[in-house]
Write a protein that binds this DNA or RNA. Structure first.
Lengths: 340, 340
DNA sequence: AAAGCAATCCAAAGCGCTTTGGCTGCACGC
DNA sequence: GCGTGCAGCCAAAGCGCTTTGGATTGCTTT
């Protein structure tokens, strides 16, 4: 069933039928109803390719997905996708994934724009002065950043959580508990979220006259293995920290492993606070002591970003709307007062 | 730059230019070269929407993604996606994700077919007599199943690993080590992979005259929490198993937690073998004793499926090609001879 | 020398939609 | 009675590609 058949059937022109269905005002209400009725009854669905060709709009959102033999997609991406899906499925919005290597990233962005494959994209895991944001800005393709960048000389639309505030508050809590030697096991240092978390931690420490020396900061990809290595390095030192802030639960698994090997107790010997993206497959309660966490659902963020991207497609949202979500600090058994 | 501009520039017709670019024989080699040259020089890229409209081919592959507030996408999906990306990015193949609820699954499949949004799809986590496969078969949309279904009265193309063989071999190894009470912590019982793993385990036990009573099989979603619960239930019994087979590393985390709580040693008190999908963020070496695993890279499967889907787009592959990969059994320190 | 045949190339007709630029008829005001 | 304005509808021109059904040319055949 295509437009022509439908309009023939109704003895109307394609123009009128098209307008009726797309809500243009120059159609009488009665005609519109008649058309909508027939369309529904015959299951008419405009052909997206044709529409796309005619309008130049794709009706889809995109994600340029970095891949590569040595690139591992962050498992949190799954949660984010779930969130996107939660919104998208109720709006018949599809998502186009365009895999690319880091080197060809720019080419891929350009290709997607030139092909008009999508009307908007989202950008994840932004770094300082992120090239992609700069590129998208000059290409004029609508986008929303999940996270934030720094050192850009223009504003851009994003959704981020208050990483600095979260880690500031977490560190402050540890300080209030009497901890003086606090360490940070963070994400890779070029990621903005990691920069913010370190900044928050440092600020809390500084305001109590405490220090965060380089030896107590590890910035690594968020794997169990890295958590283990970082924690081992930290805890084998004589001036080992009495409290650790950790950027992901997966890493925290490794931290716990290191502690166990050194027969250190949690929270007796070391207090631990982890960031929790709310990952169904691994919960804070599943640790030797239930983890105190800074919690923010990445899935909820996915939903919100899909919603905002959709708003951009229809022109409801535009400009450099910034959105920063507060982060819960959920206290559980993994922290205690410092002994020394 | 579009076809018309390019052909004007070359003083050729659009027909000839189109044919030259698409490798049709009725163009002289010299002309073809001239055209290809110009196309490259001016960065001409055919507009996909126009091409799609004209040919009815989308040039994309699709995945109907089940979502829902209570649906959690399997984290292995990430690995699979990485694999897909590995292949796809070298072929400028894009992937369209169409989120849907389980209830609307059929509608979504029909929509995607009607819209001709994609030329082929892949189906993941198949169940017994999977509805999606039946539907796709009658809709005539090319597809490949990752995994297998059972109880279908027709053949279909799939790529699966030898789950039955893997768990058979793993169980046999445990038996050879003297274990008599072997338990299985499996995935949800409607998933074919879980059915196969149970079958393999049961077969190995049976051929040594051993039993796998219902009380020693737990079939649950692959979360840490479920691993913990299942293991707790198993290990608190008087006739507790001396060896456990576990379907995922995430679950195995929970198993280890349960063992720790009960002060059971691995492999002293309980031997453990886990299936490993090769997940970069959590490795078999990260356990109290390095895990013996049945190993198969889900990422490699993603690559292969992308390759086969691409072959289907171009007509290189067709029919119900079945592909079953063997699974490595990697022995590490988590297993030992049975005491009793 | 007429006919047949590849080898090349082209004009034009779609593919199914949106949108421009009218056209018609009726009510209204003067 | 005549211009005006407006509501409601339509024909046709794209959007940028592929593909059908010829044309044209230069040779080889008979």
């Amino acid at each position: 069933m295509n437009l022509k058949q439908l309009s023939d059937m109704l003895s109307l022109s394609q123009t009128t039928v098209s307008r009726a269905l797309n809500g243009y005002p120059e159609v009488s209400e009665e005609t519109r109803r008649r058309v909508q009725d027939a369309a529904k009854r015959h299951g008419y669905r405009p052909n997206p390719s044709a529409r796309r060709l005619a309008t130049g709009k794709a009706g889809m959102i995109g994600y340029i997905m970095p891949t590569g033999q040595s690139v591992d997609i962050d498992p949190h991406f799954i949660e984010f996708l779930s969130g996107l899906g939660d919104y998208a499925r109720t709006h018949e919005l599809d998502l186009v994934l365009s895999p690319t290597t880091i080197e060809d990233e720019e080419t891929t962005y350009r290709r997607v724009v030139a092909n008009k494959q999508v009307d908007a994209v989202y950008v994840s895991s932004p770094k300082r002065a992120d090239r992609r944001i700069i590129l998208l800005n000059q290409l004029g393709l609508p986008y929303i950043v999940h996270g934030r960048s720094e050192g850009l000389d223009f504003d851009y639309p994003f959704l981020d959580i208050d990483n600095e505030g979260a880690f500031h508050d977490a560190a402050r809590l540890l300080i209030q508990l009497g901890h003086k030697r606090i360490a940070l096991i963070n994400g890779e240092s070029d990621q903005t979220f990691a920069i913010h978390r370190e900044r928050g931690t440092r600020r809390a420490l500084a305001s109590s006259g405490l220090d965060l020396p380089p030896s107590r900061v590890h910035s690594l990809a968020l794997t169990e293995e890295n958590g283990y290595r970082a924690a081992s390095a930290l805890l084998e030192r004589k001036d080992r920290p009495t409290a650790i802030l950790c950027s992901s639960m997966m890493m925290t698994l490794g931290v716990v492993r290191a502690m166990r090997e050194l027969s250190l107790d949690m929270p007796g010997d070391v207090s631990l606070i982890s960031h929790d993206d709310v990952f169904h497959y691994l919960k804070p309660e599943s640790f030797p002591a239930p983890l105190t966490t800074t919690r923010s659902s990445i899935r909820a963020a996915g939903q919100r970003i899909a919603e905002r991207l959709a708003a951009r497609l229809t022109g409801l949202e535009s400009g450099a709307r910034a959105e920063v979500w507060p982060v819960d600090l959920v206290v559980r058994g993994s922290i205690a007062g410092a002994k020394e």
